[in-house]
Simulated assay, not measured.
Amino acid sequence: MDDDGPHQRFAYTAPQFDFTSTLTYDESGFVIDYPGMPCACTDPRAAAPGEMADD
């Protein structure tokens, strides 16, 4: 399977759950795309560390 730019992609199968998908990992080895699972998303409107957010 081809990688997606800097991200590695792997085919994943869990037969006991009848699940097959492509998982995408970042440069650190963390899964960044796991279909069917919620993700921790960053709000682009959030303030950078040390800055105050606009209300």
Rank of each mutant, 00 (worst) to 15 (best):
T24C: 04
H7E: 05
A40F: 12
T42V: 13
T22K: 13
A14L: 14
Y25G: 01
D18F: 08
F10V: 10
R9M: 15
Q16E: 15
M1E: 12
D33A: 11
D3Q: 13
G36K: 07
D4P: 00
T22D: 14
T13I: 04
D3C: 06
I32F: 02
A48F: 07
M37W: 03
T20F: 01
G29S: 04
R45N: 14
Q8W: 03
T42L: 15
D4Y: 09
M52E: 10
T22L: 13
D2M: 09
E51F: 13
Y34W: 07
Y12M: 13
F17Q: 12
G29A: 03
D18T: 10
D55C: 01
D3G: 09
D54L: 04
T20N: 08
A53C: 10
T20H: 08
L23D: 02
D33I: 02
T24F: 00
P15G: 07
D54M: 02
E51Y: 12
G50R: 09
P44L: 05
Y34R: 03
M37A: 05
E51C: 08
D33R: 12
M52Q: 10
D55G: 05
T20W: 01
F17P: 00
D55S: 03
M1L: 11
L23Q: 02
A53W: 06
T13W: 01
P15S: 11
F30E: 01
D18I: 03
T13F: 00
M37G: 00
P38V: 01
P15Y: 04
A11I: 10
R45V: 01
Y12N: 10
V31P: 09
G5A: 15
H7W: 02
F10N: 07
G50E: 09
F30R: 04
A48V: 00
M37F: 04
S28W: 07
F19Q: 08
A11R: 15
H7A: 05
R9I: 09
P38H: 04
D4A: 13
S28C: 04
S21M: 10
G29K: 02
D2A: 11
V31Q: 05
F10T: 05
F10S: 06
E27K: 09
G36S: 06
Q16D: 15
D54K: 02
P35A: 14
C39H: 08
P49E: 09
Q8V: 02
E51S: 10
A53I: 06
I32V: 15
M1C: 10
G50Y: 12
S21C: 13
A47D: 09
D55R: 04
D55M: 03
A47R: 07
T20P: 02
P44Q: 06
Y25C: 00
G5S: 14
A14K: 11
T13N: 06
Q16V: 10
D3V: 03
E27I: 01
P44M: 04
G36V: 03
T24K: 11
G50F: 13
F19D: 08
P35F: 08
Q8A: 09
A47S: 14
P6E: 12
C39P: 00
C39M: 05
P15V: 02
V31H: 07
E27W: 06
F17E: 12
T13G: 01
